[in-house]
Amino acid sequence: MKVIVIGAGIGGTSAAIALQRLGHDVVVYDQMRENKPVGAALSLWSNGVKVLNWLGLADEVAALGGLMDDMAYYDGKTGETLCRFSLEPVTTQTGQRPYPIARADLQALLMDRVGMDRIHLSMKLVGIDDDGSQVTATFADGSTDTADMLIGADGARSITRDYVTAARGLPTIERTYSGYTNFNGLVPANTDIGPLDQWTTYVADGKRCAVMPVAGDRFYFFVDVPQPAGVPYDKAEGAAPLREAFAGWAPGVQALLDSIDPAASLNRVEIWDIDPFDTWVHGRVAILGDAAHNTAPDIGQGACSALEDSFALGILFATNTLGVEDTLQRYQQVRAERAGDLVIRARKRAWETHAFDVAATQEWYDQLRTEDGTGVIRGIVGNIVDSPVNLGGGIRV
């Protein structure tokens, strides 16, 4: 079977590898000109890592992942330790250590495993036609390609999703603003910010300033600033909005801001998501990843959920034999509820942590002062327990 995958991000390339391993002829198209992904890094929790292990990438991913042994919260203003605890229970309970990992490093690994001769960049999808036996993709340069199936892993503004919903007579899916802007990037690891093996987070006033270790003696930083959508920003401003938002914060935060080189690594992203929906498939066309479940990053499950899609897709095409349309319907049935649940969990977490309800956020801060790790780890593992990669028995308590 020939498969067209639209999108060479984490979801698209992992799906391509899963289908290649079954012997299918897979070709990937992406409108990007080179590997410059949005976002500096990502949290690969145990469910996401397990999918990559299943794809045959266990050693490579472990080499790229940061060693994150502990987790700590600090008062953003004073630097006081609110709580600090080991993340070992996450590994023990799930059977796999989580890894923070630079997104470009992971994407390069996945693209290399797909094979660069199978990936075509600078190719923008503009049209899809499914005649019932084959699918034809049309690109902005006028070229076309035809296959037995098309998987749209083309992101939050997915052309493939628009095709699926229109073909099913449904309105266009619109995104919802999550209420905050995220700044992220990579900086040299620095103990003035936090221990080199720790997920360190400073919190106050509904804002957070966090770092995670990634390979190469670097920290991945992500900083949240609650604000309306559409606040003007020019790249020439660099980190100036962060200096303003975190003026007077603890020395560790100032050390992070001093470490940022805007010319080398600084991204600014307004955080939007999509209401859960269950129309992922029409005929021989399906969506995957952010196209199907654009999720706020508040529980660190966005990339992991896309990897779960790829796992489910691979398992279903390996075990079902009634045809492409039937298998894609089974994929939709397996994934839509689970992925939508993670979208809602991330929304609830964002509401709690960003002072959209000031009393709720203050209650969370107060709870952190007595947290021994049990509650936080329960939440992390709770996001993983229902993953299809666990096959109903991947969590030990």
Results as ranks from 00 to 15, higher is better:
I274H: 05
A286Y: 03
A229V: 04
Y220W: 15
Y233A: 03
F222K: 08
H282G: 00
I274N: 03
I271T: 12
V285F: 05
V225N: 07
K207C: 13
D273E: 10
D290F: 00
N267G: 14
I274T: 14
E244F: 03
W249K: 12
S265T: 02
T279A: 11
V214A: 10
P262Q: 12
L256K: 05
A286C: 14
A296G: 14
F246V: 10
M212W: 14
I271V: 15
D234E: 15
A236E: 13
V253N: 10
L242G: 10
G216Q: 07
D278Y: 00
R284L: 02
D298Y: 15
A229Y: 07
I271P: 11
L256W: 03
L242I: 04
F246A: 08
A291E: 08
V231D: 02
A296S: 15
D275L: 02
A286Q: 06
V253P: 09
P251Q: 06
L257C: 09
N267S: 14
W272A: 13
A296Q: 05
D258A: 15
S265F: 10
Q227E: 14
S265C: 11
A215S: 15
V281R: 04
E237N: 10
G230R: 04
I299R: 06
D278E: 10
P213T: 10
G300A: 12
K207L: 12
L256T: 01
V253K: 10
A245P: 07
A250E: 03
K207R: 15
I271D: 12
E244C: 04
A215Q: 09
E244R: 15
Q227D: 02
F222H: 13
G216K: 07
Y220L: 14
Q227S: 01
D273R: 05
V285C: 07
